[in-house]
């Protein structure tokens, strides 16, 4: 199924972009610099499930894990899930753990992820 394998060129471009972005988010604190704000937050005043991700990335790059959780509760679990899915999809995990891959691609699992995101969205605007 597409894309079964990333080409070396694509992987290289992705890694270079990640390093540049990582450098930017390591050196500058989104708290007191001109970083793009969340459009949803600007328009409605409510927080979206992604609000605080930039500050959380900055904290995480400085290894302030608890601070990262405070800015955005979802960032670290989402990163772990995304790394796992990338391993499964592109680095042979699909063949090694077919049951796990099938489960994580399942309708139930994906709807649970959606439910968690929506619950977090609602909860962070109430509490």
């Amino acid at each position: 199924m597409p894309p079964a394998r990333l080409s070396n060129k694509k992987t290289g471009i992705i890694i270079i972009c990640m390093v540049i972005l990582g450098g930017v988010y390591f050196s500058f604190n989104p708290e007191d610099n001109y970083f793009p704000p969340c459009l949803f937050h600007q328009l409605t005043g409510f927080q979206c499930p992604g609000c605080g991700t930039q500050r959380a990335v900055h904290s995480l790059l400085h290894l302030h894990v608890r601070q990262a959780f405070c800015y955005n509760l979802l960032l670290i679990p989402v990163l772990l899930l995304v790394f796992l899915l990338i391993y499964l999809s592109y680095f042979g995990g699909k063949k090694r753990f077919p049951k796990l891959y099938r489960k994580l691609s399942g309708t139930k699992f994906i709807f649970s992820v959606l439910l968690i995101i929506i619950l977090y969205w609602v909860a962070r605007n109430i509490f």
């Binding site: 609000c51 989402v78 995304v82 994906i110 992820v113």
Partner: peptide, 12 residues
């Protein structure tokens, strides 16, 4: 799935 989650969280 992972692409969808990433754009939901990051692209806001």
């Amino acid at each position: 799935l992972w692409q969808s989650i990433v754009v939901t969280i990051l692209c806001c």
